[in-house]
Computed example of a mutant assay.
Amino acid sequence: MITLTRLTGDTFLLNVPFIEQMEARPDTTITLWSGKKIFVKESLTEVKALCEEAYRKMGLVGSIINPERES
């Protein structure tokens, strides 16, 4: 789960696997698989970084491998 801030200033936890898509319009809009839309203060870049870190902690995303360094 990631901690986000609604436009009203209230913080909440969001279960990352329920996210279908995110857009900046100009507020960051998160659409869940259920169709529900959530508007948050964090930028699209911030939310993406939080999601990536959450998936990394769950062990669902590994580190990025640089193909030029592999032999």
Results as ranks from 00 to 15, higher is better:
Ser43Val: 11
Leu50Gly: 01
Arg6Asp: 14
Lys48Thr: 11
Gly59Glu: 08
Gly35Asn: 10
Arg56Tyr: 10
Ile19Phe: 07
Ile65Thr: 15
Ala54Asp: 12
Phe39Lys: 07
Pro67Gly: 13
Glu70Ala: 13
Gly62Tyr: 09
Gly35Ile: 06
Ile30Ala: 05
Val40Asn: 07
Leu7Gly: 04
Glu52Val: 12
Ile38Tyr: 05
Glu68Val: 14
Asn15His: 11
Leu13Tyr: 06
Val40Pro: 04
Pro67Val: 15
Glu20Cys: 00
Ala24Pro: 00
Thr29Phe: 04
Arg25Pro: 00
Glu42Arg: 10
Pro17Cys: 06
Lys37Ile: 03
Phe12Tyr: 10
Lys36Tyr: 00
Leu4Trp: 09
Leu14Asn: 08
Ser63Asp: 14
Lys37Gly: 00
Met58Gln: 15
Gly9Ala: 09
Gly9Cys: 08
Thr5Val: 02
Val40Gln: 09
Arg25Glu: 07
Glu70Thr: 14
Glu20Thr: 00
Lys57Ser: 07
Val47Lys: 06
Leu44Ser: 10
Val47His: 07
Pro26Tyr: 01
Thr28Glu: 03
Arg25Tyr: 00
Pro67Asp: 14
Ser71Phe: 14
Pro26Val: 01
Val47Gln: 05
Val47Asp: 08
Thr3Cys: 04
Leu7Val: 13
Tyr55Gly: 01
Thr28Leu: 01
Gln21Glu: 10
Leu4Asn: 07
Pro17Ser: 08
Ala24Phe: 03
Ala24Asp: 11
Asn66Thr: 13
Gly62Glu: 13
Lys36His: 05
Pro26Met: 00
Ser43Lys: 05
Glu23Gly: 02
Thr31Met: 07
Met58Asn: 14
Glu70Leu: 15
Leu4Gln: 06
Glu23Ala: 08
Gly59Tyr: 09
Ser71Gly: 15
Asn15Gln: 05
Glu52Leu: 13
Lys36Trp: 00
Gly59Leu: 11
Val61Ile: 15
Val61Cys: 08
Glu52Trp: 08
Val16Phe: 02
Pro26His: 02
Arg6Asn: 14
Gly59Ile: 12
Ala54Gln: 11
Leu32Ile: 03
Asn66Gly: 09
Glu23Ile: 04
Cys51Glu: 05
Lys57Trp: 01
Pro17Tyr: 07
Cys51Met: 13
Phe18Thr: 12
Val40Tyr: 10
Ala54His: 13
Thr28Gln: 02
Glu23Asp: 07
Ile64Tyr: 04
Leu32Lys: 05
Gly62Trp: 10
Ser63Ala: 14
Val40Ala: 06
Asp10Leu: 10
Met58Asp: 15
Phe39Leu: 07
Thr28Asp: 02
Ile64Cys: 02
Leu14Tyr: 11
Leu32Asn: 04
Leu50Tyr: 09
Pro17Leu: 05
Leu60His: 11
Arg25Gly: 02
Arg69Val: 09
Ser34Phe: 01
Ile64Met: 03
Phe39Asn: 03
Gly62Lys: 14
Glu70Arg: 13
Glu20Trp: 00
Glu53Thr: 09
Thr11Gln: 13
Asp27Pro: 12
Pro26Gln: 06
Leu32Phe: 03
Met58Thr: 08
Ile38Ala: 01
Met1Leu: 09
Pro26Ser: 04
Ile30Pro: 10
Phe12Asp: 02
Thr29Arg: 14
Arg56Asp: 02
Ile30His: 04
Thr8Gly: 03
Gln21Gly: 05
Ser71Cys: 13
Arg25Asp: 08
Val47Ile: 08
Phe18His: 12
Ala54Ser: 12
Arg69Met: 14
Leu13Thr: 04
Gly59Pro: 05
Pro67Trp: 12
Glu68Pro: 06
